[in-house]
Design a binder for these strands. Structure first.
Length: 448
RNA sequence: GCCCCGAUGGUGUAGCGGUCCAUCAUCUCGGUCUGUCGAACCGAGGACACGGAUUCAAAUUCCGUUCGGGGCGCCA
């Protein structure tokens, strides 16, 4: 027997007084060993926490004792033993082992210390992500991420949304603007999709009425920041017979549920990360684009003019640079909507404002200076859609697969796309979006 | 694409013309220790990214390359 048939009977954190003097099988990694000569302490770490295994040379075979003290750190082991009450142990109990299996020996030295007293660079950590993820504070991020995605799915299903999956391999640019990753598709040229936008809108013409997709999106932009990824997870919704306000309501519900579920289910993880979350109240504040520009003008914000190359005060119609949102974030450090954007700053599928054709029915949801969500009321009128495509410099012909769905009874609809990693960053307090992805893909990183 | 900054043992760093066969911590290996929990103590091991230049002398200055970090743009 080599121990591979052993089944874990408990996680370390689940052991309590009721278990004293019972047998247990624990599986995990050797966090460290303190060998005092005639006795030794091994800290076994599993997903839940730490169990102390105490070995006494006097009361066990020399062979077993020697095995226990010689296992390198971070080796995978399983331990069968008795849980004994122990006032000297931090947990109040410890494991007295009578059988130990070394299932996977760790090479030494480790490329990355899991509990070393020195921090490692992000690069070293990502190169050795499997070891990095053995740290409770790193695992906490992914446990929270899991709750976030489950919470979003939970609300959307409750609200009558149907989960869909749209193709990631596409023939043409879906929205224009962003650079796409090109790939071979047999003898044709194909691209990785930047967004499910056009497909989820097409679903509005099917009778599914309310759809959502949680899936990858790819952008070939050479952006090099702490908040961009070339492969990220998008939470996208689209709802028919709905307007701007309806989809903003759904968004508020999703965000609120995410906060409450994380608070309820991940309090230990939040504590590990030292995050003090407060669930936001509905409705979230709404700021009009025009008011933000006024405010930034008063604050004296200058931007570089595209034509002259000179600095000038920000004007209505200019996109708001990060510096501008940083200014706004001084008063609004948390969640707020930005509404009534100029039409020229929004993509072709965003509906013009009925009262002012220069304004749009598009919105963003920000957290301080961070953009989290982009959405809005969509153009559903076929003639207007083709006009908007043309105005954006796109050829309606190449979008035939999309516009066709508008020619046969397209209801009014609205929707949004939420960056799952950006939301995870905010909830976990991560300062780099790469922290929220197991194996991030950025401009330079393709491995692991 | 633009603008800064950096690269020293497995890991994280100090040093920034000679006093460096390179500092400290962590780590690894060996030893002592029956209550450790950032164990302690004794001993040992291990590094100047690559290529070129300047100089009597380069980890240190300069140029190039490669690889990172940060900021901007773009966005989620």
């Amino acid at each position: 027997m080599d121990g591979t048939d052993w089944k874990r009977t408990k996680f370390a954190a689940d052991i309590g007084e009721d278990d004293y003097n019972t047998e247990v099988t624990l599986c995990g990694w050797v966090q460290y060993t303190r060998n005092l000569g005639k006795m030794a302490f091994v800290h076994l770490r599993d997903r839940s926490g730490i169990a102390q295994v105490t070995a006494l040379s006097k009361t066990m075979d020399k062979e077993l004792f020697d095995l226990i003290v010689s296992v390198p750190r971070e080796s995978s082991i399983s331990v069968k033993g008795i849980i004994k009450q122990s006032p000297q142990a931090k947990a109040g109990w410890e494991i007295i082992p009578y059988q130990v299996h070394v299932l996977g020996v760790a090479k030494t030295p480790l490329p990355l210390g899991v509990v070393d007293k020195v921090d490692a660079d992000m690069e070293t950590r990502l190169d050795n992500r499997f070891l990095d993820l053995r740290k409770p504070e790193i695992q906490a991020i992914f446990k929270i991420r899991s709750t976030i995605l489950a919470a979003a799915r939970e609300v959307l299903l409750e609200e009558g949304f149907i989960e869909i999956h749209t193709p990631k391999i596409v023939a043409t640019a879906t929205e224009g603007g962003t650079a796409l990753f090109e790939m071979k598709y047999f003898d044709k040229k194909a691209y990785l999709n930047q967004s499910p936008q056009l497909f989820k809108q097409t679903m509005m013409s099917t009778g599914l009425d309310r759809v959502f997709e949680i899936g990858p999106a790819f952008r070939a932009e050479e952006h090099d920041t702490r908040r961009h990824l070339n492969e990220y997870t998008s939470i996208d919704i689209e709802m028919a017979y709905a307007n701007l306000e309806d989809c903003m309501d759904i968004l508020e519900m999703v965000i609120q549920r995410v906060y409450t579920n994380v608070l309820n289910e991940n309090f230990i993880d939040l504590d590990i990360l030292d995050q003090h979350l407060v669930a936001p109240e509905r409705p979230f504040p709404r700021l009009r684009y025009g008011c933000i520009v006024d405010k930034l003008q008063n604050a004296g914000l200058k931007i570089k003019d595209e034509n002259t190359g000179r600095n000038r005060p920000i004007e209505f119609g200019d996109d708001i640079p990060l510096e501008g949102f940083k200014e706004i974030a001084k008063d609004r450090p948390s969640l707020y909507f930005v509404t009534d954007w100029p039409m020229k700053l929004k993509p072709f599928y965003i509906h013009p404002h009925p009262d002012d054709p220069d304004l749009s029915l598009g919105f963003d949801l920000n957290y301080g200076e961070k953009e989290l969500v982009s959405g809005g009321q969509r153009v559903h009128e076929p003639a207007l859609l083709k006009e908007m495509l043309g105005r954006s410099g796109l050829d309606p012909e190449t979008f035939g697969f999309y516009t066709k769905a508008f020619d046969y009874g397209m209801p009014p609809h609205a929707g949004w796309g939420l960056g799952a990693e950006r939301l995870t960053m905010i909830i976990t307090g991560a300062s780099n979006v790469r922290e929220t992805v197991l194996f991030p893909r950025d401009r330079y990183r393709l491995v692991p």
